[in-house]
Amino acid sequence: MQDYKFDEFPDKFPVAMAYVPWQRFNGIYDDLEKAYRIGTIFPELNKPFTGRRCTS
């Protein structure tokens, strides 16, 4: 059985609602041409499709 963390931030996040974490500004790609090809200037939002389970 997986060990779920049931006690995570219960006061901050009331039940029966959806929460996406706030993005904080950590800068943008230096290479904007690369950012353009990727589809975002934010490295933390770069989540490409690989079609495979092993993606290191």
């Binding site: 959806a18 929460y19 993005q23 589809g39 934010f42 939002l45 770069n46 490409p48």
Partner: peptide
């Protein structure tokens, strides 16, 4: 595939922004 990958990445960015808009609403 290059323009399709670009469009796909935008969906993830938009998801994040709508999520933040929901946080603003909350």
């Amino acid at each position: 595939s290059e323009p399709i990958k670009f469009l796909r990445a935008r969906e993830i960015v938009h998801f994040q922004r709508f999520g933040e808009a929901l946080r603003i609403t909350q």
